[in-house]
């Protein structure tokens, strides 16, 4: 490991992939590659972050992202605590400023925040000195998911320059889609989106993506597809007629994939609605890298945590 030589990220927070340079993304991916090796060892822990305190602040329910972050923190020997904040405290109008002040008062070094509202981690980050990692904000970004998708794609495709990646599903409400779009474009990939017109948001082309009118056209050109989890309703409004019709028109099935490239990669951020957006036969086939994504996610979150904390850690060691 040459980790101690890593320059660290020259930013306090990781809020989105939109603002990351290609150099920063490569630094994270390269660092993750080293941590990924650690995860295959019998002893999966590196004593890199002793005494560093992280609070996982999840305003929205999550199992795997939260577990992935906690695992990454434990692997780095950081001290971490989880605070599951119920959705009701948001409805009660809890001020993000109050939240920030309270956490600050507890001398926490880093906050990992998941929130149902776009921009919530940005507001928190602007008001506290602690590092903030966005673990998914509303329909905006989910940067560590975007990074682990990039990692998985690079692992399998080598280079993303000129490769065509298509994101399928509810683009309008997906933070995974936005982080993927920004990250993939930064790495030189061509990005397409595909889904029912009600789930394709106004002006998505301005983010530099192609909108495919049919899933057949999308699949025919793709080197990899990222299939999003579909939800029938958003804030009580049905966005398409039924999951059955969605599966019929946009479900990724073996029959549909016949027009695709033989070696097309299939990603899914999980959890899968089996046989709705993704046919089980596709999800469990060799082309699906869904479980690799999950493992890579831990390594990515280790890398992000480690790199953001570098400066703080070095300053602390200088003091000690």
């Amino acid at each position: 490991m040459k980790l101690n030589d890593a320059p660290g990220l020259d930013r306090k927070d990781l809020l989105g992939l939109e603002e990351l340079s290609e150099r920063e993304i490569r630094l994270i991916l390269d660092t993750a590659r080293e941590f990924r090796e650690v995860l295959d060892r019998p002893i999966k822990t590196v004593p890199a972050m002793r005494g560093f305190t992280i609070a996982n602040l999840f305003y929205e329910s999550s199992t795997r992202t939260r577990m992935s972050f906690e695992l990454a923190q434990k692997r780095l020997t950081a001290d971490s605590i989880g605070l599951a904040v119920t959705a009701s405290s948001v409805k009660k109008g809890e001020s993000l400023r109050d939240t920030a002040r309270n956490i600050e008062a507890m001398r926490v070094d880093m906050i990992v925040m998941r929130h149902s509202q776009s921009g919530a981690p940005h507001r928190l980050a602007a008001q506290i000195d602690a590092h903030v990692v966005n673990a998914g904000d509303g329909c905006h970004e989910h940067p560590t998911q975007g990074l682990l998708d990039l990692y998985t794609l690079l692992e399998n495709l080598g280079d993303l320059r000129g490769k065509r990646i298509v994101i399928i599903g509810d683009i309008a409400h997906s933070r995974v889609a936005r982080s993927n779009i920004h990250g993939l474009r930064r790495m030189g990939a061509q990005v397409g989106v595909c889904g029912p017109p009600t789930l394709i948001p106004v002006g998505i082309e301005d983010l530099g993506v192609t909108v495919y009118p049919t899933i057949e056209e999308a699949l025919a050109e793709a080197d990899a597809i990222n299939v999003l989890r579909i939800q029938l309703e958003r804030i009580g409004v049905p966005l398409f007629p039924s999951t059955r019709e969605y599966a019929r028109l946009f479900g990724v099935t073996p029959a549909r994939l016949e027009v695709a490239k033989r070696e097309v990669l299939v990603l899914h951020p999980g959890p899968i609605n089996r046989n709705v957006e993704l046919d089980s036969r596709v999800a469990d086939a060799p082309g699906a890298v869904i479980l690799s994504q999950v493992t890579n996610g831990v390594a990515i979150r280790m890398a992000v945590t480690y790199l953001l904390a570098q400066k703080t850690m070095k300053a602390a060691h200088a003091l000690a």
């Binding site: 329909c139 905006h140 309008a172 106004v202 002006g203 998505i204 301005d206 804030i235």
Partner: peptide, 15 residues
Amino acid sequence: NESAISTKLGLTGMH
């Protein structure tokens, strides 16, 4: 406002 900017920010638009 609903536009490419609301889409980028992930905020629900009001057309």
